[in-house]
């Protein structure tokens, strides 16, 4: 998209300006408030406290693991959605993108039904392998992967769709096997989308609350990730909640800056 060389004279109608200002206030004031109320002097103490370090460690571990799952399973799924000529693909796409809009707590309930100790799959996991996902760290990872994977899938699928398939034809005429083409041509061509999808998925996993607390509970050191620790701290020490929130805000800001070329470039489509 190009901007016109001559700047057009634009006047913002007053009602629109007022409503826009209210919107900015609605979105901006809470964030400014968070920065203002963050106990900066206590920050080092709070962040080194056992509750915070445990929550930080769990959050990092679970979000990275969930992102890894999303990459390993999500790229093949995106490939199938973009390329496979089998009936039912639209239904599968609708199914896998549903977690994007599903209330996370519903996701948590659904996960309990599937993987709970008496769940559809969970009962066999427990009876045969003694595996119990709910209220475990693994459960947190499952919950985060559940909500985060769709971000990666739709990003990568879009890239696969818009990638020129003739590059793969060119590689084929040069003698490349399908596996060689996938590794040396297809995946490198969509690498930027994979990175963007992974960052989005990781950010979503990091902030995950509803599905986690429903499916995995809120056990410090086991399932209490940062957002859950913030929620818990609101009842005990508000300044701890503010401090941990500040950390999450900083991470979100960093993600936004990292992806600015993709989502923030003005008028980019």
């Amino acid at each position: 998209m190009t901007s016109s060389p001559a700047r057009a004279r634009r006047v913002t109608p007053i009602p629109i300006g007022i409503l826009a200002a209210i919107a900015v206030a609605l979105l901006g004031i809470p964030l400014i408030g968070l920065v203002l109320r963050t106990p900066w002097s206590r920050l080092p103490d709070i962040l080194t406290s056992p509750v915070a370090t445990e929550a930080l460690r769990l959050s990092l571990l679970c979000s990275v693991a969930a992102t890894a799952i999303a990459i390993v399973l999500g790229i093949p799924l995106a490939w199938v959605l973009a390329r496979a000529k089998v009936p039912g693909v639209p239904v599968v796409r609708a199914l896998v993108t549903l977690p994007l809009v599903l209330p996370p707590v519903v996701g948590g309930v659904a996960l309990l039904i599937a993987f709970g100790r008496r769940g559809l799959v969970g009962q066999y996991l427990y009876d045969w392998f003694g595996v119990q996902l709910p209220f475990s760290t693994a459960g947190v990872i499952i919950a985060e992967a559940f909500v985060a994977m769709p971000f990666l899938v739709i990003t990568v699928e879009g890239a696969l769709r818009s990638a020129d398939p003739r590059f793969e034809e060119a590689a084929a005429t040069l003698g490349a096997s399908r596996w060689h083409i996938l590794r040396r041509v297809t995946l490198p061509l969509i690498a930027p989308a994979i990175v963007a999808g992974a960052v989005l998925a990781w950010a979503r996993a990091l902030g995950e609350f509803g599905a986690t607390i429903t499916f995995a509970g809120n056990l410090p050191g086991v399932t209490q990730t940062m957002p859950l620790a913030v929620y818990a701290a609101l009842d005990t020490d508000r300044e701890v909640a503010f401090a941990l929130s500040m950390i999450l805000l900083a991470v979100s800001l960093a993600v936004l800056i990292a992806l600015r070329d993709r989502y923030l470039r003005r008028g980019a489509s």
Partner: peptide, 19 residues
């Protein structure tokens, strides 16, 4: 398959791998 033929192909817009 293309890979099994002793054929070189120069495409209209060349299709050099951009990466």
């Amino acid at each position: 398959a293309p890979a099994q033929r002793s054929v070189g192909y120069v495409f209209q817009d060349y299709l050099l791998f951009p990466h």
